[in-house]
Design a protein around this nucleic acid. Structure first.
Lengths: 114, 114
DNA sequence: TATATTTGTAACCGATCGGTTACTTATTCC
DNA sequence: GGAATAAGTAACCGATCGGTTACAAATATA
């Protein structure tokens, strides 16, 4: 497996839009492609990237491939941003806030790797 | 202005590491470059991307350029992931959860655009 | 003043990205 | 069986990415 990076997967606005669509309802590839100006193969490629990083799972139903969003992988992103949340929610000294956060969560020596 | 996308900016693991470093302490370009195996101009390019999207600001001090992280822009990412938070925090029916979220936050018709 | 330090940037490189068209395969419907 | 539908994939394209080396400019230091 290629073990795609979820940060890289959500970097593209089209893919973020796809995730939003699938939150409402599971759709097959053509259903998704109909909502965009780009071609079906282009959507198919985006979907491959989303499945490779675990953001989307596909279940085959006859000749149709239904795509479901799997939001668990999005937690990885939320957790990363949460490290710095205090910096925008409170007007604290930045260094102090970070050290507080580090203490609370007891994160490892190198918390900034991916 | 190029008006860089913060999602694209944080897609690169090196840039995420830089953000983590600047959370501890403001540093000049060489300080940052010393922590990586890649060249100084490469770091300089990463820093340009980070400043273009507002994640980093630079203050000139003599011949040194001090880089400070600006976490406000990270809220944009946190807000996007928060739309789907219920999907991983609770074991609810996915459609129901999304509609609840939509109701609470009263987000616009097309909440999935970037 | 001469030299060292900090930085930006230009030119280049190979790889990847996001898209296309064309073709194939599998399934469903008449 | 034959036609239509859904989807994967290969080949190609131009642009961007992430890196390099080389050079220039500004500031600090001896």
């Amino acid at each position: 497996m290629l073990r795609r990076d979820v940060f890289q997967a959500i970097a593209d606005p089209t893919r973020r839009e796809i995730i939003g669509m699938l939150a409402h309802k599971s759709l097959n590839i053509n259903n998704v492609a109909d909502e965009f100006a780009i071609s079906r193969p282009a959507i198919s490629k985006h979907m491959k990237i989303l499945t490779e990083c675990g953001l989307v799972t596909i279940t085959k139903q006859g000749r149709e491939n239904y795509c479901h969003a799997d939001f668990g992988k999005l937690k990885e992103v939320a957790d990363w941003t949460a490290r710095y949340q205090k910096f925008w929610t409170e007007k604290l000294d930045a260094l102090g806030a970070f050290l507080d956060l580090e203490n609370e969560q007891n994160i490892d020596k190198n918390p900034d790797k991916s």
